[in-house]
């Protein structure tokens, strides 16, 4: 994605703008570096995996999560950013009858504060253009082949909510504890282009 343009030139220009903004006092020296550290230390798919594992083992938590995800994830000491920047989280649950897939067709909205930066494919023009029209085709590219009678719902993050899919608990996982269950969950599963 980033290799086909003169990356060195753009890197230099970003550096230049950053130093000008520091010189003009728009940003404090070192503030960008601190923000990057926060960014990398904050959201991660592991947060999503913990939420999913809790929902798989605690039906009451699952209900709360599907009704008001922002409140429910606070029980796990997680948040969508908190304060004025807190966005609404909407969790949609896969079932035997219905499978959910998330996209942002207009830009790249994603629960970054909770799950970290989204993968490049999620932000790609191809995914954004195609998944609303042909989710089964996209799922097939990801190796997901759902029975024909499973309804698919695509959620377009076109406004203020951010979405996370609650995958179905895999068969044969009865003996696993919450941490072992969380280890099964992938970022792709939280978007809905994988089963888990």
């Amino acid at each position: 994605m980033s290799g086909h343009h003169p990356s060195a030139a753009i890197a230099e220009r970003v550096r230049h703008i950053e130093s000008l903004l520091e010189r003009h006092g728009v940003i404090a020296p070192g503030e960008v570096d601190r923000r990057i550290d926060d960014l990398l230390a904050g959201g991660t798919p592991l947060n999503g995996a913990r939420i999913v594992a809790r929902a798989w083992t605690d039906p009451a938590f699952r209900e709360r999560l599907l009704t008001d995800a922002n409140s429910a994830i606070r029980e796990l000491a997680l948040s969508m950013g908190g304060g004025a920047s807190e966005l609404r989280l909407k969790v949609v649950a896969n079932t035997a009858e219905e499978h959910h897939v998330v996209v942002c067709t207009l830009c790249s909205c994603y629960p970054t504060a909770l799950l970290g930066p989204s993968p490049s494919w999620y932000k790609s023009d191809a995914y954004r253009a195609r998944v609303v029209r042909d989710p089964r085709g996209i799922l097939a590219e990801f190796g997901v082949d759902l029975p024909a009678d499973v309804r698919i719902t695509v959620w377009d993050a076109s406004a203020e909510s951010r979405y996370m899919v609650l995958p179905r608990r895999p068969e044969g996982t009865d003996g696993l504890d919450e941490a072992e269950l969380a280890a099964l969950v992938t970022r792709t599963g939280l978007i809905g282009t994988a089963l888990v």
């Binding site: 609303v132 029209r133 695509v154 959620w155 377009d156 076109s158 203020e160």
Partner: peptide, 18 residues
């Protein structure tokens, strides 16, 4: 319904709208 948006497809699309 996808059919109402694209003329084909058996899925649904949920859009968040003002």
């Amino acid at each position: 319904r996808a059919g109402d948006l694209f003329g084909s497809g058996d899925h649904a699309v949920t859009v968040e709208l003002w």
